[in-house]
Design a protein around this nucleic acid. Structure first.
Lengths: 114, 114
DNA sequence: TTGATATATTCCTATATGGGTATATATTAT
DNA sequence: ATAATATATACCCATATAGGAATATATCAA
């Protein structure tokens, strides 16, 4: 079987880098489709399709205004993702950040190997 | 073109629910492949393949011990994901909803530009 | 009405993938 | 050496895309 559906899972929706970029643009301010097209330099159908995925998982919402559709981020839908990630937070130590840990590992490895 | 490679992007690695389940199991304690097979009731190759993806993006690390490979979570690799999500945190805060934030930004921009 | 603009959708293709089965590789035990 | 165990990998297939091109739909303008 192929990959699981991206369409019903926010994790999956975010797996596509373009969609993350889209959210980053939209969080600054709500935009119409064509404004996104201009900003992103993507084709219009491409923008519409990615927006459609984001809408299906609730990460953006859309309202109609005349010919325009105005999209905005629904950031609350990111909360479940953060909650999932936070489960693991205790396992990356507070006192040392990852870089330090990494450097220490490299250092002790060099000491051991050298 | 098909979907972007899952193999080099932690977001993509987490897009697969089975891999998230795997991390949840591993964060409790490190496990060998066969222990995971028993716990998860997945086929051995399936476990190995998902572990391989997680390893490639650095979300797990592996050490060899005799015939066994012991896998453990490298939770620090989740930090970039959390950082990405946190960018949006102010927008799901209770005190301000997105519209208010937007209006404030527009207002200050107008003040600056006007 | 006719045309222009804004957006969504349909159709197509190429491809990365998830899962299964079989097999390869490594290590330990006899 | 041979067998058994632990794990990874190769191969195959079905499928869900992502993207492009063309088209449909909706709204506004003349």
């Amino acid at each position: 079987m192929a990959r699981a559906r991206t369409t019903f899972d926010p994790f999956n929706a975010l797996a596509e880098p373009k969609r993350r970029a889209l959210l980053e643009a939209l969080v600054v301010k709500e935009l119409t489709v064509n404004q996104i097209v201009e900003i992103m330099k993507w084709s219009q159908p491409m923008v519409s399709k990615h927006l459609s995925v984001l809408k299906q998982v609730g990460l953006v919402s859309e309202r109609k205004e005349g010919r325009y559709r105005i999209y905005k981020v629904n950031a609350a839908q990111l909360k479940p993702i953060q909650k999932w990630v936070i489960q693991f937070e205790q396992y990356w130590s507070n006192s040392l950040d990852h870089l330090e840990v990494y450097l220490n590992e490299v250092q002790s490895k060099e000491v051991k190997d050298g």
